[in-house]
Simulated assay, not measured.
Amino acid sequence: MSEPATRRSSPLRRVLFVLVLFAVGGAAGGVLWERLWDAPTGLAYQGAWYLEPAGPDFSFEAIALFVVIAFPLGLLLAVLSGMWRGHETATLVSVLVGACAAAFVMYAVGHALGPGDPQALAAGQPDYTPVPGDLGLTAPDQGRVPWHSTALLALPAGAMTGLVGTYLLGSRGFVRRPRG
């Protein structure tokens, strides 16, 4: 005999599936973010690190790359989650929570794989020694927290866009039409 339909696709199973999917996707996004990013080089001068050449195009490249990867990643993961019909409320909540967690996982993995804190690396170096910058989501200024950025909202924004699109438009292409 077959199991009842409610047991086969329980809301708890759905939530766990979506959370694991987003955690794995966030980790993969972090690896991709670090691999595609070119570390800007700065110089050590009097025990401090300075970006060289200075400018917003060098200091914000990591932020732009994070957003370019995170939004489509959230979109794709949400579409995959939304294609599994039933328990839409549980799916919505788990996609939102999973997308927020995945954004932090993506940041944590990419930051951990990237170079260390340039201020700490420059502290013991002689003047004008090249030191690579670190992978963060803010300008590389001294005293800034590297993850205080609205770029972390890119993955949840992409996920909500993908889920809404799946729920509004997805039923047209996946519903079996009667023949006859």
Rank of each mutant, 00 (worst) to 15 (best):
Ala23Ser: 15
Ala102Met: 08
Val164Asn: 05
Arg35Cys: 01
Leu77Asp: 05
Ser10Tyr: 06
Ala23Phe: 12
Ala102Asn: 08
Phe60Ile: 02
Asp127Asn: 15
Leu113Asn: 02
Leu153Lys: 04
Leu65Gln: 03
Arg179Asp: 12
Val93Leu: 15
Gln142Asp: 12
Glu3Val: 03
Ile69Trp: 03
Gly143Ile: 06
Arg14Ile: 14
Ala28Phe: 07
Ala5Glu: 14
Leu80Asp: 01
Leu153Gln: 05
Pro178Trp: 08
Val175Ser: 13
Asp117Leu: 03
Tyr128Gly: 00
Val131Phe: 12
Asp117Phe: 01
Leu137Phe: 07
Ala27Thr: 08
Val131Asn: 02
Cys100Ala: 15
Tyr128Asp: 12
Asp117Gly: 01
Ser149Pro: 05
Val79Asp: 04
Glu61Ser: 14
Ala108Met: 02
Thr161Phe: 15
Ala90Asn: 07
Ala48Arg: 15
Pro140Val: 01
Gly173Thr: 06
Arg13His: 12
Arg8Leu: 14
Val93Gly: 02
Met106Gln: 15
Thr138Pro: 00
Gly114Met: 10
Phe22Trp: 07
Gln142Glu: 14
Val24Gly: 10
Leu152Gln: 02
Glu3Trp: 04
Val79Gln: 11
His111Gly: 02
Ala159Ser: 15
Val164Thr: 05
Val20Met: 07
Met1Pro: 07
Ala70Phe: 10
Gly158Ala: 02
Ala54Cys: 00
Ala62Cys: 09
Pro130Leu: 09
Arg176Ala: 08
Ala102Ser: 14
Met1Leu: 06
Thr150Ser: 13
Trp37Thr: 10
Thr91His: 03
Leu135Val: 02
Leu80Met: 14
Gly26Asn: 06
Phe58Gly: 05
Ala62Ser: 15
Arg13Glu: 11
Met106Gly: 06
Ser171Gln: 10
Val31Thr: 11
Tyr167Ala: 11
Leu51Gln: 09
Thr89Leu: 15
Asp127Ser: 08
Leu21Gln: 13
Ala112Gln: 08
Ala112Glu: 09
Ser171Phe: 05
Val67Lys: 00
Gly47Met: 09
Ala112Trp: 14
Pro178Ile: 07
Trp37Arg: 13
Trp37Val: 03
Arg7Ser: 05
Val145His: 13
Val68Ser: 07
Met1Tyr: 01
Leu21Lys: 07
Gly29Ser: 15
His111Ile: 04
Val20Trp: 03
Leu65Trp: 01
Cys100His: 06
Gly162Asp: 10
Gln125Ser: 12
Val15Pro: 06
Asp141His: 07
Gly124Ile: 05
Leu163Tyr: 14
Val18Phe: 03
Gly133Asp: 02
Val105Cys: 03
Leu92Ser: 06
Val68Trp: 12
Val67Pro: 00
Gly136Ala: 10
